[in-house]
Design a protein around this nucleic acid. Structure first.
Length: 807
RNA sequence: GCCUGGGUGGCGGAAUUGGUAGACGCGUUGGACUUAAAAUCCAAUGGUAUGUCACAUACCGUGCCGGUUCGAGUCCGGCCCUAGGUACCA
């Protein structure tokens, strides 16, 4: 190319050109068992909604797109796949409203998404696309479920669900806020239903342990730990007077057992039904139960509200050691699904219990010395020592807990247990657009898993997607689907008609990318061994607890049954923040603040969008969209385009050379630390300096283009070609830093008096401490500010500052 | 309510993790170029006050109140606001 005057930067033409070039030559295809070191970069696959891609998707993908392009330049065999999490409610609702089959809607949406992804120049391996709604895919989702069922990890149990009597559907908490159905406004009922659960609690401890191997922000770990909610405590059995039943409580403070003055059970506690005959105020309790049922868990857990309860008349518990009679209350601040659904109340040393005791005039007993328990609960567990507690007297809390737990065990009254806040995973929906649960109900054999060779259990074609009158899935209406034979005895049987939640397909999709076409196993073991674990997994902040825990659980199970070779699926997890509308609100159609990325590509180009989406702010933080910031990124690329006119110098200035290597170093580390915004800022700084200079060498410009390439690959490739290079950047190598150029000989030292900066001086780097102190004290400006004061001390921090403290 | 983040100029955000607050971008103002505009380039840009007012100086300034330290945006305690999660939204 010998153009003297470069053409204007025509992003549209350039982007089309290079996308065709890359995609037609399969540059981004990952090679199974390739010889280069492997790198698996994973982004959360999208739900292909009808509105096309959201700018949030771009923020989520561009980060690892940059990393993937950088890794290829660094010599890795990169697997950077994409797919679609396409089961789910919105599609089904759309289908119900418009009468279009979800399959058709999904296929259309996937096509739109794929086109948009390609127009952005993302370097995904498109030969590995997975779609969770494809029977070849969900066959394996069902297969995993079957294996869990075989291993006793999938079971049915009764639970209360939100049910809308008008829409005849089970609703999520989100859909039934304030006890009102989201769609029709009628009052939501609680309905008891048989639902499927996955026994994730069995993996609680391992899910906790596995976090040690996960490289991630501490906060992401903490959030998962809190979700699992491990707490070490004890179970204690309290006999019930005049009954054979015992009340089992969970407590983390078994040391305070002698301070118990009453008991509290959850409104749902089965003991209430069992003792129905003895309880004299059952009517009152029943109406309290009804009231509690209407409240959300959040309302019930509200610690600021006044705790209320009902005293159970006619029944009392007995203290396991002293045999003292203890009144029992029903109160909705005790939850049935945490611990045992019953607590022992120690008002002397628990704030909630204290408030409750005051309200109902119950006794308060001091068992830990140090406070005034009549006034407030005394909760110091570090220094408190036990009193009024027989064999525990004089012990510290920690010792007392240990001793009490041993004693409880010895006497058959309970003992140490570990409890988890995490609940088993409700794993079914009464919907059409999900994976059918591969179970058959046989009158003789009960619940039987279908035979593996009969998988997948395909979704039948439907024309109507509304649930039936009982709130069962629409599949229940299809006789040809429901009626089947028992895989075990061959007799008449009915298929399970519930489907799986959307979490199912997304719990293992990253395994399928490794071997997407396999029809004899979910993925080949050797291929899994080559590619796993996922080196870097990025997704939404909103997924760091549930989705990540769920998929780790599935992975651990698959490891246990020998299907996958690694205990943990992910090595590193990051999370991007939300992009808000330019008004600072969450983007939503109703607010009219939605930004359409396709439009941005049309007007500014994909490279500009890619740059801006990362330059917009701190990657982990939510940030508003700003049209002007976008303009700035386009201007930057225009400037880069014009730099080609400068790239004819024979030799670089020393400053440019140093700056280039500083830039290499900074861009490199910033990318690895997800500080994409500052990486781009440093590229801008370099471009500004280069533009101001007399000229830069072609080599320097090439190095700069290589740094820019992961962010804005189209323009970088084009300029690289214009420089006369045959080798495209997609095949080139990542620049290396020349450490020698980074060392500066002269540095700026700050002189301050009482912490306030008063002067600065440039000095040799290796100047001595004493000399620095001398310089500071002789400095005119420093002198001015210490005049009339006595010097108390001088703090010298070599390489940074001298602070003179004077009074 | 509970768990986890965040709060820094007019705006988005930087700050080597206790050591020069405000990098980079936007916006604004002034200037250059132009018949003109756009584009581009150059310069200024946290606030207040004072003076000898194109310059200089001082004080204040990182949500609020308090603390630790020679020194705090950064650490500690309390509070306010805000975002995500809270188990059938994904």
């Amino acid at each position: 190319m010998k153009e003297v005057i470069p053409m204007d930067y025509n992003s549209e033409r350039i982007e089309k050109k290079w996308q065709d070039y890359w995609y037609s030559r399969d540059f981004f295809k990952a090679e199974d068992f390739g010889e280069k070191p492997k790198y698996y970069a994973l982004v959360e696959f999208p739900y292909p909604s009808g509105t096309g891609m959201h700018v949030g998707h771009f923020r989520a993908y561009t980060s690892l797109e940059v990393v993937s392009r950088k890794r290829r330049m660094e010599g890795y065999n990169v697997l950077f796949p994409i797919g679609f999490d396409a089961f789910g409610l919105p599609t089904e609702n759309y289908a119900m409203q418009r009468g279009v089959h979800p399959r058709k809607v999904t296929d259309q949406n996937i096509e739109i998404f794929t086109e948009q992804i390609k127009r952005t120049g993302f370097s995904f391996d498109f030969s590995r696309i997975v779609d969770t709604t494809d029977p070849d895919y969900y066959k394996w989702t069902q297969w995993i479920f079957l294996k869990m069922f075989e291993h006793g990890l999938a079971y049915r149990d009764k639970t209360k669900v939100n049910f809308c009597p008008d829409c005849r559907v089970v609703l999520s908490n989100e859909e039934s806020q304030g006890g009102v159905c989201d769609r029709c406004g009628s009052t939501v009922e609680k309905k008891e239903k048989d639902v499927w659960f996955l026994r994730i609690t069995k993996y609680a401890e391992r899910l906790l342990e596995g976090l040690e191997e996960l490289e991630t922000l501490p906060r992401i770990k903490t959030e998962q730990e809190n979700w699992i909610g491990k707490s070490e405590g004890a179970e204690i059995l309290f006999p019930i007077e005049g009954a054979n039943d015992k009340l089992k409580v969970f407590t983390t403070r078994s040391d305070t057992l002698f301070g118990v003055t009453f008991m509290v059970v959850a409104p749902e506690h089965p003991v209430l039904d069992k003792l129905e005959g003895k309880i004299t105020n059952m009517d009152e309790i029943r109406s309290y139960r009804k009231k509690a049922e209407k409240k959300s868990e959040m309302e019930r857990a509200d610690e600021t509200r006044e705790k209320e309860g009902i005293r159970i008349e006619g029944v009392q518990a007995l203290h396991p050691f002293t045999k003292a009679r203890l009144p029992i209350f029903v109160a909705d601040y005790v939850m049935m699904d945490y611990g045992t659904g019953a607590i022992m109340a120690v008002p002397g040393h628990d704030e909630r219990d204290h408030a409750f005791a005051k309200k109902y005039g119950l006794g308060i007993k001091e068992v830990i010395a140090g406070g005034d328990v009549d006034k407030e609960a005394y909760t110091d567990v570090e220094n408190g020592t036990l009193v009024n507690s027989f064999f525990l007297d004089g012990l510290f809390v920690k010792q007392a807990i240990e001793k009490m737990n041993e004693r409880l065990k010895k006497e058959g009254l309970g003992g140490a247990v570990t409890s988890y806040k995490m609940k088993d995973w409700a794993f079914n929906r009464q919907r059409y657009w999900g994976e059918p649960i591969p179970i058959v109900h046989c009158e003789k054999c009960g619940m039987v898993g279908v035979k593996e060779e009969d998988l997948p259990i395909r979704l039948p074609d439907l024309e109507r997607f509304a649930p039936n009158r009982e709130g069962e899935s629409p599949l229940a209406n299809i006789e040809s689907f429901v009626e089947t034979t028992c895989p075990s005895c061959g007799g008449k049987a009915r298929r399970e008609t519930d489907t799986m939640p959307q979490w199912a397909g997304s719990s293992w999709y990253f395994l399928r990318y490794i071997d997407p076409g396999n029809d004899s196993e979910l993925a080949n073991y050797h291929k899994l061994k080559y590619w796993l674990g996922v080196d870097w997994y990025n997704g939404g902040m909103e997924h760091v607890t549930r989705h990540v825990i769920y998929s780790r659980f599935w992975h651990q199970f698959l490891y246990d049954i020998g299907v996958v070779p690694s205990r943990e699926p992910f090595k590193k997890r990051t999370a991007q923040g939300l992009i808000l509308g330019s008004d600072g609100d969450k983007m939503s159609k109703s607010k009219g603040n939605v930004v359409d990325p396709a439009e941005i590509i049309d007007t500014c180009g994909a490279d500009t969008l890619r740059l801006y989406i990362l330059f917009i702010g701190d990657y982990e933080q939510a940030t508003p969209w700003n049209e002007n910031g976008l303009k700035g990124c386009r201007r930057f690329l225009d400037k880069v385009w014009r730099l080609q006119e400068k790239a004819h110098a024979k030799k670089d200035d020393k400053e440019i050379e140093t700056l280039l290597h500083k830039t290499i170093e900074a861009v490199d580390t910033d990318i690895e630390e997800t500080k994409f915004n500052t990486a781009i800022a440093k590229l801008m700084t370099f471009a500004n300096e280069a533009a101001k200079s007399e000229g830069i060498t072609k080599d320097t410009f090439l190095t700069f283009l290589k740094l820019l390439n992961p962010f804005a690959p189209h323009i970088a490739e084009e300029l690289n070609e214009r420089l006369g290079h045959r080798e495209p950047l997609v095949k080139s190598s990542w620049p290396e830093v020349d450490e020698r150029l980074l060392e500066e000989e002269r540095i700026t030292i700050v002189f301050s008096v009482n912490g306030k900066v008063r002067d600065k001086r440039e000095v040799q780097k290796d100047i001595g401490k004493d000399e620095l102190e001398k310089m500071a004290l002789e400095n005119e400006r420093v002198k001015k500010f210490i005049e009339g004061k006595t010097i108390v001390k001088v703090v010298v921090v070599p390489g940074r500052l001298v602070n003179v403290v004077a009074k």
